[in-house]
Nucleic acid binder design. Structure first.
Length: 906
DNA sequence: CAGGTGCATGGTC
DNA sequence: GGACCATGCACCT
């Protein structure tokens, strides 16, 4: 527990205004302040606080003292310090926590009526909608919401409690408290250490017990209020809630809080995820069958019985962070109760303005609606702006689909997108519904954190980076790009994949780092992951992702280039981290991630950076054609030592570019990037228009939908480009042989050595932009409507005509189909049958005279594996491997085939 | 024709 | 197998 700088700690005087002592050198923390900091006390006050005697010591003359209805003990109810020292009785009066605890233990004899409390809260919240109020019970839907008089409708902001007791706030926010305490109490209780003080303070910790709110799920009117002590528990639990955002004074903090990580109820759940109380509450609502006598301790996990499925899915559990709550509550005295959250889908964030609400959440936290028209719902965003949405539902498969309509302005105002998380919470006093947002990155981290612990013991952290390329960007039907769908999809995919990954160590076979924003991460992590020595990975395909599966964990290693030397011996080339020279090493050597010449024990002559590089420029170029961005950086450095020679270039490169340059970042751009670009609104590139994985109708080969047409068109373009390149190279070869090429033309004719790495150079620009008709080398390219340009992206206006969201389908399938088609066409092309292989193996640009180190260049750990969503890779691979592979036309098998080829080449 | 609306469909859990 | 829900899409204005 570290001292939190801030107001509470700025002074050297004890925070207790009644004490003017100096704080000890290491101030002791007292109750938590609204700011999230802790009151820093002197030893004496801290001791009193920890002993639960603080109010007795300092507030004796203060107002707010009441008497426990059970034991008669005086309890101070009027300060932040004592906020958790008592519970409210719904019949009036208070009860000290000790008595409350007894009541809890005694079971359902309590007179607490959480339902009542709960309803009172809601009635507060939505009283303005009484006309269509959710107080109508009959036929009001599956949730028998009921209006009950608010017992305490004058909540007092907690920090200002003096004469008014804070529990009024609690009671008025009964449902919120339910949620809070459910979410908080159990984990809190489980944190014995954390509780210690609380126990002392309260003379014992309440056992988590009956926390369920019981309501009959049918008719709704006869909702049976379970008389249970849940309120007691709620409040008791609340008192353990260390988060001041909930208006709870907490004299301790969790380690998490101390780390600055959490500090909010939701986060407390993470280490041992507990469903929010909302969940349980809702569960009961949904079930409507909760036995009234059920006073069980729930650990928050889905119930093993059938009712468990009625629980909210963990993904809807609110996982507010301090920042979230702070954002919502600001510095107000409000008490915020997280209800649920949802990651915005593309549809949610789209222009259509309909936010699909999780059914259970909607029914649990929103007023019941009996008519599809629903009712207006006033929601305040985190900026304090109020919005009115229409909360309604559609009949759907004998069920309902709840939506909030009219959210577009709010979403736009909040600048959130698909993938971001919208949080719903309730603000007290007032019961105002508050909508908060969390950006995808944060959400992802949160989810990651949470789900990692929800995932059957399999950490998802690594998986979190497995950005689903299909989700990289997508466009909703309104044309808005759900570019943050990445986060959403990752989160979703993470769950799915995680369950499928099994126990074996796996390495995602993905090398199209460009598809992922985390390029460096991929390069450094993914790229450095290498199979254990003497292990041949089996390749498994999970959801289209290929994983190398090892019996042993992959190890970190330095990416190298595997090749075959002139003697047919398998070797690998490794680049020194210091001098960037490439050194020849045995193929079975596994290098550390940082490898330098000095470690070159296999070639003492070249165990120093001063030693000359064994590779010639041409050879090096031959090694570098795979346009592996990861390798390219350093390769570029190495290349600078030598003549700049064009590297191997082929359709694969173009294809890579075609994909990579999607929409904006063609080599023609000075901002060319090897990354898959961020897709902006309006982008209808092939990536963006992809539906989520597995979504959308299946497309036939004859399908003429926009997506299919786009794919086909792009493949046609690819083919044309390939032809053009082929002709270029042929012409260039010829011209070189004839030595007739003009000096100033040669560079132009040279294809980019490694376009991904070099696309910032003017060369590709020229190539892409050239194609003059008078250039004999361009003759063939002239057949391209794009004159040799990589057209896949350069004419976004063409793609604008596409209706990005109007069609969807399995892009995988589509691309496979297109690949099939392309390959079939390839086989009929006289120049195409071997073109790709030729392109990649004859090294026209780099100089055919260059000595080939090996045709099968494999960038060690940064495999140029096929991305399933980018058939160009499939084409590349297949075409460069075998006809059998070609005909497979399936990305997965293609990749596997590539592996086979790789093995062969090895 | 564009945008909105309500429902249907199909993937996922 | 059913519920949920994201999204497609027909219909309406």
């Amino acid at each position: 527990m570290t001292s939190t700088p801030g107001a509470a700690s700025s002074s050297k005087i004890c925070f207790n205004s009644d004490c003017k002592d100096l704080k000890s050198e290491i101030p002791r923390k007292g109750w938590r302040l609204r700011t999230g900091e802790f009151a820093e006390l002197c030893d004496r006050c801290a001791f009193a606080f920890e002993e639960g005697r603080f109010c007795d010591t300092f507030h004796l003359n203060a107002s707010g003292w009441r008497t426990c209805e059970s034991c008669g003990k005086r309890v101070h109810c009027g300060c932040i310090v004592s906020v958790h020292a008592f519970t409210l009785l719904d019949a009036g009066g208070i009860e000290c926590v000790a008595c409350a605890r007894k009541n809890v233990v005694m079971g359902s004899s309590s007179s607490w009526s959480p339902s009542l409390i709960f309803h009172s809260s809601l009635s507060e919240r939505f009283k303005e909608y009484s006309a269509k109020g959710w107080t109508q019970l009959a036929g009001s839907g599956p949730v028998p919401w009921r209006q009950a008089p608010s017992l305490f409708n004058s909540p007092v902001p907690q920090p200002e409690l003096h004469s008014r007791v804070p529990y009024e706030v609690d009671l008025s926010t009964g449902i919120d408290r339910l949620n809070v305490c459910d979410r908080l109490s159990t984990p809190s209780l489980e944190k014995k250490k954390v509780e210690d003080f609380s126990e002392r303070l309260m003379n014992g910790t309440l056992k988590p017990g009956t926390r369920d709110i019981h309501e009959k799920g049918n008719a709704g009117i006869n909702c049976e209020e379970q008389r249970n002590p849940c309120l007691t528990k709620f409040q008791s639990s609340l008192k353990e809630e260390p988060n001041p955002q909930f208006g709870l004074a907490v004299p301790y903090t969790s380690p998490d809080e101390a780390n600055g990580q959490n500090g909010v109820s939701g986060t407390h759940l993470r280490p041992n995820p507990q469903p929010p109380l909302a969940k349980q509450f809702h569960s009961n609502l949904q079930n409507g069958t909760d036995s009234s006598g059920e006073t069980q301790i729930r650990n928050g996990r889905p119930r093993p019985d059938g009712r468990g499925k009625n629980n909210l899915f963990p993904r809807y559990w609110p996982r507010f962070t301090d920042q979230d709550l702070q954002q919502i509550t600001g510095d107000s005295n409000s008490v915020i109760t997280p209800l649920f959250e949802k990651m915005l889908s593309a549809s949610d964030a789209g222009r259509i303005g309909r936010l699909v609400l999780p059914k259970k959440c909607a029914e649990a936290h929103f007023p019941p609606i009996s008519q599809p028209e629903g009712l207006p719902l006033k929601v305040q965003d985190s900026k304090g702006k109020e919005w009115i949405f229409q909360f309604r539902f559609w009949p759907n498969n004998n069920s309902r689909m709840y939506v909030l309509e009219g959210v577009t302005p709010c979403i736009q105002n909040m600048q959130v997108q698909a993938g971001d998380v919208v949080t719903f919470s309730r603000l007290e006093p007032g019961g105002k519904l508050v909508m908060g947002f969390r950006k995808a990155s944060t959400a992802s981290a949160s989810d990651q954190d949470n789900e990692a612990k929800n995932s059957n013991g399999v950490s998802m952290h690594g998986d979190a980076e497995m950005a689903d390329p299909t989700s990289w960007s997508k466009v909703d039907k309104s044309g808005y790009i759900a570019k943050e769908a990445l986060g959403a999809k990752v989160a979703v995919s993470r769950k799915r994949k995680n369950s499928m990954l099994g126990s074996k160590s796996k390495r995602l076979r993905i090398d199209n780092e460009d598809l992922i924003e985390l390029k460096l991460t991929w390069e450094e992590a993914q790229g450095l992951l290498r199979p254990p020595p003497n292990h041949v990975a089996s390749v498994v395909v999970i959801e289209g992702f290929e994983f190398e599966e090892y019996e042993d964990a992959p190890i970190l290693g330095k990416p190298t280039i595997f090749a075959t030397d002139n003697m047919g011996e398998k070797i690998q080339w490794a680049q020194c981290e210091d001098c960037f020279k490439w050194r020849r090493l045995p193929s079975n050597v596994l290098l550390p991630s940082k490898w330098t010449c000095s470690s070159n024990s296999w070639d003492p002559e070249r165990s120093s950076c001063s030693a000359i590089q064994e590779l010639t420029a041409e050879q090096l170029e031959n090694l570098l054609p795979q346009c592996n961005p990861a390798a390219s950086k350093k390769m570029k450095a190495a290349k600078q030592e030598t003549e700049n020679v064009d590297a191997l270039e082929g359709l694969d490169t173009l294809a890579n570019l075609a994909i990579l340059g999607e929409g904006e970042s063609l080599p023609t751009s000075s901002q060319a990037t090897t990354k898959h670009p961020r897709h902006r609104p309006g982008c209808s590139c092939i990536v963006c228009i992809q539906p989520p994985s597995g979504k959308g109708p299946k497309h036939k080969q004859t399908c003429t939908c926009n997506v299919c047409e786009t794919v086909k068109r792009r493949f046609r373009t690819l083919m044309m480009r390939r032809e053009k390149k082929q002709s270029q190279k042929e012409a260039e070869t010829t011209s070189k042989k004839q030595q007739t090429s003009l000096p100033d033309k040669v560079p132009d004719d040279d294809p980019p050595p490694c376009t991904n790495a070099e696309n910032s150079s003017p060369k590709p620009i020229k190539i892409a932009s050239e194609g003059s008709e008078d250039d004999p080398n361009r003759v063939k390219s002239s057949i391209s409507p794009f004159k040799g340009q990589i057209d896949l992206n350069i004419q976004p206006e063409r793609e604008e005509e596409l209706s990005p969201g109007s069609d969807s389908g399995s892009m995988m399938r589509l691309l496979q189909d297109a690949t099939d088609k392309y390959l079939r066409q390839q086989s009929t092309l006289t120049s195409g049958g071997n073109s790709i292989s030729e392109v990649s193996q004859t090294q026209p640009g780099g100089g055919p005279e260059g000595e080939k180190i090996g045709n099968s260049v494999n960038l060690g750990a940064s495999h140029q594996d096929i991305d399933r969503d980018h058939p160009v890779f499939s084409i590349k691979t297949s075409a460069s491997t075998s006809a059998t592979v070609k005909n497979s036309g399936k990305a997965k098998s293609l990749t596997i085939s590539k592996i086979q080829v790789r093995n062969i080449l090895y």
